[in-house]
Design a protein around this nucleic acid. Structure first.
Length: 407
RNA sequence: GUCCCCAUCGUCUAGCUUGGCCUAGGACACCGCCCUUUCACGGCGGCGACCGGGGUUCAAAUCCCCGUGGGGACGCCA
């Protein structure tokens, strides 16, 4: 599981993490957390920490990697640049790579020209056959070249565990960059070196990487590394059919946590995106049951739409399975974190918790979703035995802020 | 634009590998009825799909081709 710390952990990434984790648990393998932070501009330490917190909150503990250590560290790519350079040198010595002095401007111009002609962009190979003398003198003169892979002719093909056999002509792939001019590693290269050195057996990642995999397979070939198994997971779409993003509402798992969703509910729902448990077991499952029946070979290829209504149903079901004591505790801390109740001891708090416990007993079999439950608690009137419609109105879109409003 | 990939109810999907058991099954949502002092929960029932067109075959949701729609890649991002 190699995330980039370039933003909040998104449900799509979590689904990928989850499938990696499930596969590792199912097969008795190790789930490894490696940070892909080779993009210095976008990577931020705070995102890395949030990512760790989110993964732990969900219960997706890793066996090896960040904060955990292991035999194949370091587990942060910025700490591994030396390794990449070593392998780059090897590729160069074997004639599979070359220095490229093309300026950004020249590349942009090439790209634009190709586009206008309606051709796919591909590096034109200007520097492919520079003499070693020229290379040396330009480097001596202070030019900072990138290192490119000399892509062979023919085709490349691999068998994906989800998508099956996929093939592409190498004529489609230009000589791509291995090391940037600041000598840091580009993603595809770092990824292959790490996966090989860390003895990764299964690469399970988002579908967006399917075409990167062609490049990577070529790198495995040149580097003489054994090929791991690849499994690509379809994209998660928003209700309008486009890739799920912020404008579709809550997408970061932090937001779901704040709204009071249960980690087990979220994990259960996400496991259902692209995968189906055996029919006889139903869809509301404890994590152990998911592990037991999880099967990568039965993962769907087509993109899945994120459906909040079904998430709510799954979450609600887990809420009901929680039991009164645990539930009262969760409700209380939810209200505290939302600022509805003060985080302190006191008679009025005890009274409230007492009422909550009574109510939970009464409502034991009738729980809705978490915010719905809170809504009931706040508006329950024992004399009338019914909810106050005005309060219900305010809380029809219940969240922590709305709860705050009425107290 | 070029390449890679995908296509079953509104949504998640089973079935497709090994064509007939599919008048296409389940779940969420929705609608109705029952239960209930309200709501909810629960029970029962309903609505609802094989993207289009050609093949192959005695037989196609399942295999092949074309079209259409969608996603992804084409970066000194990952």
């Amino acid at each position: 599981m190699p995330p980039s710390p370039t933003g909040k952990l998104h449900v799509g990434n979590v689904r990928t993490a989850l499938f990696n984790w499930l596969f590792a648990r199912k097969t008795g393998g190790s789930f490894i957390l490696r940070i892909e932070d080779t993009d210095a501009d976008r990577s931020r330490a705070e995102y890395e920490q949030a990512l760790i917190d989110d993964l732990r909150w969900l219960g997706l503990e890793w066996d090896e990697g960040l904060e955990k250590g292991g035999d194949f560290g370091p587990y942060r790519q910025t700490d591994r640049f030396g390794l990449y350079r070593d392998h780059a040198r090897k590729l160069m010595e074997e004639g599979h790579a070359y220095y490229c002095f093309c300026s950004q401007e020249r590349l942009d111009a090439d790209r634009q020209e190709q586009q206008e002609k309606g051709l796919p962009y591909k590096y034109a190979g200007h520097c492919r056959d520079l003499s070693s003398g020229e290379v040396e003198s330009r480097i001596a003169a202070g030019e900072k070249p990138t290192l490119r892979l000399k892509v062979r002719e023919g085709e490349i093909s691999f068998r994906d565990l989800v998508f099956g056999q996929v093939t592409v002509s190498l004529a489609e792939i230009g000589d791509f960059i291995l090391l940037r001019s600041d000598s840091s590693s580009q993603y595809n290269f770092a990824c292959v070196v790490d996966d090989a050195l860390m003895r990764i057996t299964h690469v399970i990642r988002g579908e967006g990487h399917l075409t990167n995999t062609f490049r990577q397979v070529l790198l495995y070939e040149y580097l003489g590394f054994p090929l791991p198994d690849f499994a690509h997971l379809s994209t998660i779409l928003g209700p309008d059919g486009s890739k799920l993003s912020k404008r579709h509402g809550a997408t970061s798992i932090g937001e779901f946590r704040e709204k009071g969703y249960l980690p087990e509910g979220l994990v259960n729902y996400l496991s259902l995106l692209g995968w189906t448990p055996p029919e006889e077991s139903g869809e509301v499952l404890a994590i152990e049951e998911i592990i037991r029946s999880f099967d990568l070979g039965h993962v769907n290829k087509s993109p899945a739409t994120f459906d909040i209504a079904k998430l709510n149903f799954i979450n609600r079901s887990h809420l009901k399975n929680l039991g009164d004591g645990l539930l009262a505790e969760k409700v209380y801390s939810f209200l505290v974190s939302g600022g509805v109740l003060p985080d302190r001891e006191g008679p009025e708090i005890m009274e409230w918790v007492g009422q909550a416990a009574d109510l939970l007993e009464k409502y034991a079999d009738t729980l809705a979703d978490f915010p719905g439950l809170v809504r009931d608690l706040l508006s329950f009137d024992p004399d009338k035995g019914m909810a106050d419609p005005e309060v219900l109105e305010i809380l029809s879109e219940p969240d922590a802020a709305a709860c705050n409003k009425i107290v």
